[in-house]
Every structure is written in structure tokens, then in C-alpha cells.
Amino acid sequence: MVRDDLRCIYEIAAKDMRTYYLKPPAISWGIVFPVAWTLAFYLRSPGDFEELVPGLIAMTILFSTTAAEAVVINFEMRLGTLERLLLAPVSIGGVLLGKVLGGFLFGLLMTAAVTAGTALAIGLRPDLTILIPVAALSLLVFSSMGALFSVGFKEVFEAQTFLNLPRFLMVFLCGVVYPISAMPAPLQFISQLLPLTYTVEGLRVAFSAAPSSPLLDSIVLAGFFVLFIFPAMRLLRKRFE
């Protein structure tokens, strides 16, 4: 059963990469938006670009994973193709993880391209032993968050619309646009409840020479993954009751 699930998880992810992710709309959301956003900040203060890199990578992770993930399950439920997947010897959890893995892999490609591009362009040497686990955990978190919204709403546009609320809230409160320490206390509190804050913190550690540990950020990110993936599985199971 585990073998069947693992095979199906891989096949579903590979199929999703071909049919949904490696297409212009997903690529534009995944790369163009974070790059344009960062460019706007760069033009305002060109000297601080190095400081913007963790934010740029964090936003690439956020937008590349959620770009299509937030709609693929919902979309397939409407077309009946998700039901077709469930007819195969695979559990509901396996199907969901296959969908999450698709978002994860696409996010990984986009993030790797952006990270390598910026690191080579401005000569940054991030600590890969920190960068890779923080990025991988973050990709899982935001891919599963997209899946949760996709399963939670009946209409594709509802999932996209409602996902924009936490997505943009995170962009503004994660510490990239404005330092968290300078925010009013209630906003500081809210920022601590958002996963992107921990992604940015972890990535900053990876890009700084400071000997601080991203362990807490990684643990919190792992917690967010659990917080998103299990309710998503439960909701999906309920849709097929």
C-alpha cells in the first residue's frame, strides 16, 4: 500500500508539473511577480539589494508554490479528474501529497533559479546547510497551504481570492517590506503567526555570516506544514464522504 502510494504521489506530481506548472501563468506568478516587487524596492534604494535577497527568495517560494496549487485540486474536483485519481490504488492522503509535491517541485525549480541567479549576479555565498532545509520546509508549507485553500473552497475563483488575503498579509508583515521590530505591537504579534516570517528569518540567517541558528524557524515551519496538510486531507476526505 505504501509502495502504491509512493508511486502515485510521484506520478501525480510529474503529471501536474507538465500540465499545470510549466505553463506561462504559473511561471509568471512564480517568478515575474517576486522579481518585479524586488525591483521596485531596489529602485528605491539600490545600495540595499543584498538585504532584499532573502525577501526575494521568500516571495518566490510563496508565489511559485501557491500560484497553481491553490486551484489544481479544486479545478480537478470540478472536472472529475481527481475522482479518477482516487479510483487507482492510492489513498486520499497519497493523492493530496502528490498534488503538494507538484507545487513543491515547481517552487523548487523557481527558487533554485532565482537564488542561483541573484547569488551569482551579486557574488553572495549563502550557507547551503541552512538555505536548503529552510527553503525545502517553506516550499512544503506554502504548497500545503495552497492545497488547503484549494480543497476548502468549491469554486476556483473563491480559492484564489481567499488565498490572496493571507498571501499579501504575509508579504507586508514578514519583515521584508518593513522591519518587524519597527511595527506596532499588534502587527508584530500577527507577524509571528505567519509562516513567511519564519522563512524570511531562516533565509536571512543563511545569507548572513552571523552564527545564529535557524532551528526554531525550521521547527515552526514544520509545525505549519502539519497545520495545513492534515486539515487539507480531512477536508478532501469529507468531500468524498
Binding site: D4, L79, G80, R84, L87
Partner: peptide, 21 residues
């Protein structure tokens, strides 16, 4: 049911394969 599914073929009432494939 997981084991049974290996020997079952299902044609649902709608033709639900992937349009883009």
C-alpha cells in the same frame, strides 16, 4: 479496498480524463 482496486476498472458516468493530455 486498496488491494481490490488493483483488479477493478471503473468507467464513471462522465468521461473524466485529462483534457490537456
Amino acid at each position: 479496498i486498496h488491494k481490490a482496486k488493483r483488479g477493478i476498472g471503473v468507467v464513471p458516468d462522465s468521461s473524466n480524463l485529462y483534457e490537456e493530455l
